[in-house]
Simulated scan of single mutants.
Amino acid sequence: MSDDNARHAAKMAKVKAARDRMMQDRQGEKGLIIVHTGKGKGKSSAGFGMILRCIAHDMPCAVVQFIKGAWDTGERRLLTTHFGGLCQFHAMGEGFTWDTQDRQRDIAAARAGWDKAKTLIRDPAIRMVLLDEINIALRYDYLDVAEVVAFLRDEKPPMTHVVLTGRNAKPELIEIADLVTEMEALKHPFRDGIKAQAGVEF
């Protein structure tokens, strides 16, 4: 074995020993509150990736979309066509706020989405609920963040995962979350005149 390989092997042995010690103290499981936020792309995509993992493990799951509504998205088409037995899909939004231009209608749609979300989260048979773009509804105060936080804290079953996506996550939500990821935008094709494209954005 060369000196470089020997040094690398010794270093990796130390890393493995440290990792093994760390893992000994991390044997617990719980239902997580997960937030994907930030100005970069990938928030909903990460949430749907988790939904597909649940499906692969035969874990019942559900999606409530708060904004996209009637959009014919790839994720909606895939989940409803092929995995409807394991994943409920509820598109409750009416489109982006700048499209509807009707605050009361947006509030009503957000309330309906939240009511559906609470029913799904309360069901102990459902292991993960994705609340796609709920942070947008919270940002515009279509929903009361204190109500959402109190429900997740006090009523979510212990082993149910809830994923909340959308930019500008409220500090109160971040505070109670177990896992928070902020997507950072470094480059975006929209700035170069490229529109949203099937398979990438929807």
Rank of each mutant, 00 (worst) to 15 (best):
Gly95Leu: 14
Gly95Glu: 12
Gly95Gln: 13
Thr97Gln: 12
Thr97Phe: 13
Thr97Arg: 10
Thr97Met: 08
Thr97Asn: 10
Trp98Asn: 11
Trp98Ser: 12
Trp98His: 07
Thr100Arg: 15
Thr100Ala: 15
Arg103Asn: 06
Gln104Leu: 11
Arg105Asn: 09
Arg105Phe: 08
Asp106His: 03
Asp106Val: 04
Asp106Asn: 15
Asp106Gly: 10
Ala108Phe: 02
Ala108Pro: 10
Ala109Thr: 12
Ala109His: 11
Ala109Glu: 07
Ala109Met: 01
Ala110Met: 05
Arg111Met: 09
Ala112Leu: 13
Ala112Gln: 10
Ala112Cys: 13
Gly113Met: 11
Trp114Cys: 01
Asp115Ala: 15
Asp115Thr: 14
Asp115Glu: 15
Lys118Pro: 00
Thr119Cys: 07
Thr119Asn: 04
Leu120Tyr: 00
Leu120Val: 05
Ile121Thr: 01
Arg122Thr: 06
Arg122Cys: 07
Arg122Ala: 10
Arg122Ile: 00
Asp123Gln: 07
Pro124Arg: 10
Ala125Pro: 04
Ala125Cys: 09
Ala125Arg: 15
Ala125Asp: 14
Ile126Asp: 03
Arg127Pro: 02
Arg127Ile: 03
Met128Leu: 15
Met128Thr: 15
Met128Ala: 13
Val129Trp: 01
Leu131Val: 06
Asp132Arg: 01
Glu133Ser: 09
Glu133Val: 04
Glu133Tyr: 02
Ile134Ala: 08
Asn135Gly: 05
Asn135Leu: 05
Asn135Arg: 05
Asn135Met: 06
Asn135Ser: 07
Asn135Trp: 06
Asn135Gln: 13
Ile136Met: 14
Ala137Lys: 12
Leu138Asn: 05
Asp141Met: 03
Tyr142Ala: 05
Leu143Trp: 03
Asp144Trp: 14
Asp144Thr: 12
Glu147Leu: 04
Val148Tyr: 01
Val148Trp: 02
Val149Gln: 02
Ala150Trp: 11
Ala150Glu: 09
Phe151Tyr: 07
Phe151His: 08
Phe151Glu: 00
Leu152Ile: 04
Leu152Tyr: 05
Arg153Ser: 08
Asp154Cys: 06
Asp154Tyr: 12
Asp154Val: 07
Glu155Val: 06
Glu155Cys: 11
Lys156Gln: 01
Pro157Asn: 05
Pro157Phe: 11
Pro158His: 03
Pro158Leu: 01
Met159Cys: 01
Thr160Cys: 12
Thr160Arg: 03
Thr160Lys: 02
His161Ile: 07
Val162His: 01
Val163Tyr: 01
Val163Lys: 00
Val163Arg: 02
Leu164Phe: 04
Leu164His: 06
Thr165Met: 07
Thr165Ile: 05
Gly166Val: 05
Gly166Arg: 02
Arg167Ala: 10
Arg167Ile: 06
Asn168Ala: 09
Asn168Arg: 10
Asn168Ser: 11
Asn168Lys: 12
Lys170Leu: 09
Pro171Gly: 02
Glu172Tyr: 04
Glu172Met: 03
Leu173Ser: 10
Leu173Asp: 08
Leu173Gln: 08
Leu173Thr: 14
Glu175Leu: 13
Glu175His: 15
Glu175Cys: 09
Glu175Asn: 14
Ile176Glu: 12
Ile176Tyr: 09
Ile176Lys: 13
Ile176Val: 14
Ile176Thr: 08
Ile176Asp: 09
Asp178Ala: 09
Val180His: 10
Val180Ser: 03
Thr181Asp: 05
Thr181Tyr: 08
Glu182Met: 11
Glu182Tyr: 10
Met183Glu: 11
Met183Thr: 10
